[in-house]
Structure formats: C-alpha cells, structure tokens
Amino acid sequence: MAASTFTFSGFSTPEELDPLGIWDLVISPVVPYAAGSDDRGLIWRVDHPTSSREAETALLAQRAKVEQWEYSLDAAARRLADLSPVTSYALGFGAPEAELLAQIAALQSPVLSYGLGEAATAAYHEVYEQANALLLQFKRLIHHFARIETATRGVSVALTAVDWTGDYETVWLDGATASDMGLHLEAVRLALESRHALLRLISVVTSGALSLTLKASVPGGQVLLLPAVYNYVRSILKELERQRPSEPVRTGRLGTVEAGYAWNAGPGSGS
C-alpha cells in the first residue's frame, strides 16, 4: 500500500531539505531560493492513499518525530552554548564543532590581516549571500499564514488557514467522514508543531550566532555567523538522529488520539 505523503511549500533551506526530515519541500521553479516572492504563503499538505488506521499511525509517527527533534534541538543548543572559540580552536572538539570553529577562524582572519585576497573576498560574498537567503526564509516563516490541507485518495477533504494571531478557519468537504476529520485535525497539529519547531530552530541559530559573536569578535557579527551556526546545528541534529535507535510510536500518544477519534466520531458512528 502506498504511504501518506507530506509536502511543504513556500519555504526553503540552503540544502533544500526540511530540517525536520518530515516534509518534502516543494521548491517552485519560478521562485528561486531566497527570492521570497511566492505570495501563496506556507502550505502543508498531507495526502493519504486511504482514510485508514495506517494514515493515522503515519501522522502520529511524524508527530513523535517532531517531538524527538525538539529534544535534539535542545541538546544542540546546549552544545552550542558550551562552545568557546576563545579557549581552543582545535583540540577536544567533535567534527561539527571543529568545522564551525574553523569557519569562525576564517571569518576572524581579516581582523588580523587587512590583506584580503580575491579568494577571500569571494568567500565572504558567498557567506553574505547565504546569510541573506536564510534571513529571507526566516522572514517568510513568520510573515505568512499557515495553511494545512488534507487529501484522501487525491481528493481534498479539508483545509485550515491559521493566521498570525491564531484565528482558525477550516473548510470541510461536504460529506467528510469522522475519520477524515480526525486525520485532518492530526495534520493541523503536525503542521503547527513543525512550524513551531522551525521557529525554535531560528531562535537557537540566532541566539547561538549572537553568543559566538560576543565570544569570537567576528567582523560582520551575528548575521555573518548565521549560516555557519545553522549548518552546525543541522550537523548536530543529524548526528543525534544517527545515534538514536528507531522507536515505535508511543502508546500514550496514540491513546490520546484514539480518545480524540471517539469524540469526533460522535455517537454511533463507529469510526
């Protein structure tokens, strides 16, 4: 049986991959990365091959993944906070730390020497572009409404728009079943938890860049360090993900959602 698909459009990253590893980013060909002119906003879409228990389980598994990812983000933030470029640049650090510290050292070098060569200037231009692109994407994430769509067997059954102040508007297809409703509610939760996780990523990256700026005296300050810190945090998250054994979806979470389904179904619907 085909699996449910999860797509996210209106947002991109330097690596063109969802940092959470859940959503397939839909990069519009007419909207190049960092252009920021796609006005459709942020759209999360979940397509289920069937309205079934498998679809429900897939959604729950993804939500558990977001939850786990946020814990990993906490760990990354702690490692970032503990990083001290002023004490040692090379010794006693793992690979992600070493890479970040090397980038910091490279960015610091003009302070030591004003003889900036052509290659160094080009490298700086690239870093500036990356930082600028990242900021534009961050801006998109907070500027646009969130829209979540659920489809079953290719037919859209529900759409929810969430504006910046949290107002919800949900449109249901006439005849949507209780099962459809339950799946869409879970999709809304998953999408908004994903957005929250990305916002926390921004928060960790920006505050981490600020902290390192203060420690390392990088010309260009926090903004220049954004790409390096972003890449560092992504590396840590990947490293933690590799270390983590695959876990089944927690039963506690499932139990909660099952109670929600019983609710949604209403008396006698038997869903």
Binding site: D167, E169, T170, V171, W172, D174, A176
Partner: peptide
C-alpha cells in the same frame, strides 16, 4: 475559530 463546509475544497 470558524468552521465551513463546501462542495469543492
């Protein structure tokens, strides 16, 4: 929080 229904999502 508003809930609508429609024939064509």
């Amino acid at each position: 929080v508003k809930t609508y229904s429609t024939k064509d999502i």
